[in-house]
Nucleic acid binder design. Structure first.
Lengths: 243, 243
DNA sequence: GAGCGTCATTGCGAATTATCAATATTCAGA
DNA sequence: TCTGAATATTGATAATTCGCAATGACGCTC
């Protein structure tokens, strides 16, 4: 159960400039979808746009910087660190998700540590800006609510799929989650390292490795290119149900 | 892992009359806290007030009735039923929590089955009423967001505390959760039955029973009265960390 | 291409947990 | 108080999973 996670604390984020929300080509996916272009004309604090390399720590649990983040592209893991040094991945979020929303609800600090899994492209939004926009555009409040509801759905799925059943079932479910939410256009997805997979399912690293290796031998899971994999969805669904 | 759950579908709810939100003595705890008394003057659809006996099914996953529920008193479990007949308890909610909020986000049906654990006193609020109030009082939207954030926090805690570690640790955490969130004024709390405890932790019923019995022998957990128990919090915290 | 560090895989014995079956306890009614 | 049904506890054994250590695979640098 213990995974020490030697995640290096590199925050060599590359600043990509001020965000131009009014011209953002993916705004319909983001937190500010449906706000009028004019909403961004009088912002008191700037929204910055960053590119983080894999492994970057976006923020740490217990700290407080007055920013929330909207993920344009890439995968972020929300990690809960236990006192004994082990850590559990609570949630995996991708394109269009907003993180750090607990700050909007009055929380003094972030509830998790957020770490970039691959290269992450995001906008860093001051809490004050969100509040300003919320007061001028009450509709934004609904979008925040929608984000929360989405994350609640993901958390529930996590509990049900990754927290129930034997190890083989959980790993099968995990691969299905990766396939469903994080596959690229070509249908391939990043297979996380075994340590992360263990931290997501609550299973020992070696056990995860054994099961993944088994899936590979059975050709249920196979490498597509680099660290991208593809899988036999039907076979995994069968496994996830009946072991 | 398989628990068939012979939960009887009894919905012998006792109607307690129309709710008078403007005079509700616990409104500050509820979804409509901080709305002015006048907010309730022109409601198009009525808010009803019910008392449900233990075991009542408030609603079932996949169905849709246009109501959300605000729990005034009592404990409700949100259950996810798997195809194989087993079921997992995703969340336990009590006084002041609102359930069925997924309907506000456009979901066509409830995401879980909601079952009263003990006697539950709640208000049944038409979705249309919430929408009406939201449009007249944008502040309500924030309260819905707060409810969602609260539930997300609970779900995260569930993942971390009840989904990680060995069986003994999980059961210890579960008892601590019951103690923290559901103890009465006298500090005692209902110890759920073993089947429910198993469905919350993802552990076999017999294993849960063994561990609970062990706790009782060690006087870490002891009966206070009827089905109310008290526990040694420090000892359980120790156990939850180091097995 | 050799050397090196990191991560994945595998073997193996120990510890934990599931599962089936039997026994005890509790609780609601009669 | 007695009785039967539902729950809880316990025993025994099989299956799974853990945890440690060894080995293998891969990428990177020199």
């Amino acid at each position: 159960m213990g995974n020490e996670s030697g995640q290096s604390f590199c925050t060599n984020a590359e600043w990509m400039g001020r965000a131009h929300c009014d011209k953002c080509h993916i705004r319909q996916l983001m937190l500010f979808s449906e706000l009028p272009d004019t909403a961004f004309e009088h912002l008191l604090a700037p929204i910055d746009h960053f590119l983080y390399p894999p492994g970057s720590v976006l923020y740490e649990a217990g700290t407080h910087k007055p920013f929330i983040y909207s993920i344009r592209r890439g995968m972020v893991k929300l990690v809960h660190a236990a006192q004994d040094g082990s850590n559990r991945i609570v949630r995996l979020l991708g394109n269009g998700s907003a993180i750090g929303l607990e700050l909007l609800d009055g929380s003094k600090s972030y509830h998790h540590t957020a770490i970039a899994v691959n290269q992450v492209d995001l906008c860093k939004i001051p809490v004050s800006t969100v509040r300003q926009l919320e007061s001028e555009h009450p509709a934004l409040c609904k979008h925040v609510g929608k984000q929360l509801q989405d994350q609640l759905n993901i958390a529930d799925q996590w509990i049900v799929a990754l927290g129930t059943g034997a190890a083989r079932q959980r790993v099968a479910q995990l691969v299905l989650v990766l396939e469903e939410f994080f596959s690229e256009d070509n249908g391939a997805f990043i297979l996380l390292n075994r340590e992360d997979m263990a931290a997501m399912t609550g299973i020992a690293v070696e056990t995860v490795s054994r099961i993944v290796a088994e899936f590979k031998r059975q050709k249920i899971l196979y490498r597509f290119k680099d660290n991208f994999y593809m899988c036999n969805v039907a076979a995994l669904q069968e496994l996830s149900r009946y072991g």
